[in-house]
Amino acid sequence: MSDNNKVNEKDRVMDEIGLEALPVTNYWQDVIRLFTKNRIAVIGLIMMIIIVVLCAGAPLFTSHDPITEMNFSELLFRPGQGGHILGTDDLGRDIWTRLLYGGRNSLVTGIAVTLISAAVGIAIGLVAGYFGGTVEALLMRFTDIMLSFPFLIIAIAIMAVLGPSQRNVILALAIVSWPRFTRLTRGQVLQIKQLEYIESASVAGFKKGRIMFNHILPNCLGPLIIQATLSVGGAILSAASLSYLGLGADAAAPDWGVMLSQGRNYLQLAPHLTTIPGIAISLTVLSMNWIGDGLRDAFDPKMRK
């Protein structure tokens, strides 16, 4: 008991010192300043904002309905043909409209899956890597188990037990994608925890949680941000494979990944069916990448000198 108290006391003191040394407001101002100085990152952010605005305000940018407006006499129009900016799909629906409405689902799925799996994966990876020993063995074997489950079985089981909905799609995808973050984080932690300043921090008696999140995490953000930005695209595509398996809530609802996979038989006949949603996903991932690069540089303590 008394030991614990002593440690806490020390910690409190250290906290105060820490706060004094680096005021929080300054830190964030610094990050924002560094980020805005990075032109590519800002362009990425602007692109992202444009995409979000287009999708969120979809009805403002199109007069068509994405679902009920099928026109069997206007099948597979090329971009520009018959007043359809991006043409029509195999059921005569306006692709531009479906792209805008579809972005709502796809962006939410892609970003939510990434955030959840990154949060869970990073936390587990930090703990495993930092504590080592039995904790690590248990956690890492657990990730081994999660990785080796056939994705299809998980999807079918979740669908059967919880029912199809976008929330469950996100859940299923998060369940299968967090181990990647765990392994990546742990690998980084193993390397970083050997560094002198971490050792000195623990010798100085910093709380473990504090060392993990304030000292180790920022130093392994680089690869994690890359994994996260790239996994947004992966999640959008995987959501499509889930809707093919029956996890998707509504097959008629527009979704970028679903648009892509439904166009697969038209690669020769009407390639715009696949390339258009492909470009939409690419642009999203690209802007995320640029934002990610900017964030990495802005957060990276070494770049901040």
Partner: peptide, 24 residues
């Protein structure tokens, strides 16, 4: 299934088209 669900939705019938894995 998509055509039918969309046609129904157009007349105020709330029909959801759901693709399911074959065994299910």
């Amino acid at each position: 299934a998509v055509i039918i669900a969309s046609s129904f939705q157009a007349i105020g019938v709330d029909c959801t088209a759901q693709t399911a894995e074959w065994g299910t």
